[in-house]
Design a protein around this nucleic acid. Sequence first.
RNA 1: GGGCAGGUACCGAAGUGGACAAACGGGGCAGACUGUAAAUCUGCUGGCGGGACGCCUUCGGAGGUUCGAAUCCUCCCCUGCCCA
Length: 403
Amino acid sequence: MMQPASEQFRIIADGAAEILPEEELIAKLERSVRERRPLVVKLGCDPSRPDLHLGHAVVLHKLRQFQELGHEAVLIIGDFTATIGDPSGRSHTRPQLSLEETRQNARTYVEQATKVLLPERLQIRFNSEWLETITLRQLITLTAQCTVAQMLEREDFARRYAQGEPIGLHEFLYPLAQALDSVAIRADIELGGTDQRFNLLMGRHIQRFSGQEPQCLVLMPLLEGTDGTEKMSKSAGNYIALTDPPEEMFGKLMSIPDSLIVRYFRLAAFASEEEARQLEEELRRGHCHPRDAKAMVASRIVAFYHGEEAARWAAEEFDRVFKYHQLPSNIPEIVLPSTELPVVELLVQAGLVSSRSEARRHIQQGAVRIDGERIQDWTARIGLERERIVAVGKRRVARIRHG
RNA sequence: GGGCAGGUACCGAAGUGGACAAACGGGGCAGACUGUAAAUCUGCUGGCGGGACGCCUUCGGAGGUUCGAAUCCUCCCCUGCCCA
């Protein structure tokens, strides 16, 4: 049985940055309840980069809420654009992929996305299905629906244009292609990050042109990365992947700046507005230590992806390594053929450093410890007649033995 | 098609014949400190070499001038702006 529209709206709006237009969404929800017809909720994804992170999870979680409300979630895999790639050659964000690669990536994507989504209530569509066969005639009719000035309104186009950075003509076509996805599945609602506003609005525009009722937009805030400034992205290297192992996920979460604790609680740990307000208040009054708050948020996020048990273990492990400066409990074992060799060689062969120069630098800076003892002399030779525990900094540790 | 301005390391950006493996900033890594992989301070940040020095590779690409080129010349490729 469907929940009343007003209650549904409350859930949908919770945590959303923006809903456009609100009245239309309410009207759609009311009609949906009245006619017992679920709404089609669209989320597009780019299969050229199948590594999902906590930033993606913000939107995925919103889609999941729609699933729980009984609506129809449609995941659009943008395989068409992925197989075309980005011919400008300057952007590495859209490498050209073969059809098989795209399919493989899509599988990986769905696998990761269903850590958040309910797999049994998920429809998956590939947009090559309807984009592949478009004719030039159709394309021209479509492009006539939008002026250059309108295109240049998009924030990043405007910025790049103003700064004299190149904009490929094909880039203008991507928002239109995305809009056609909405037409193809007759989307009632499209989800995205706030950076997708322009593209999703284009969906409304083109749907109207195609004689359809325009979709509503539910825009989610963009989660900052672990550096605390830029939005989380793979290219910025400030991301926490959904597939990161528990201890790594926990560690990365502990490294976020204090100012982001509540935001992560809300967006990444999916805490309710009420919970978030409470935590904020406790932090403000000093009733809760920022470190403890962060550990709590981290545990909750790790638990969501890996379970309670793993979260507890990751928290303990973190204290062990960083609070009590002990060795991690899981140290990878590496077997080398030699019984004795220079430290520099040892570090390189064990894969703990990428070059001999780097090895020397680390040794000189006192970052290298063998069996807990700091090595300062880079000409030293190390015997492997027994197992050695070799550490480069706190995070690169290996058990090395001869074999 | 013409004119002008550009292309430098992971990114941004100096450098216009030797002192340049290339300033500076960001990022990254490490050390100290700490509640943390936060903040702060310090160091490192092309590779190779038993090494405060030497060698090799690098400044859009290919040639050339020179004892010596990121820097000068020729051709080519790429980007932006203006004109057509």
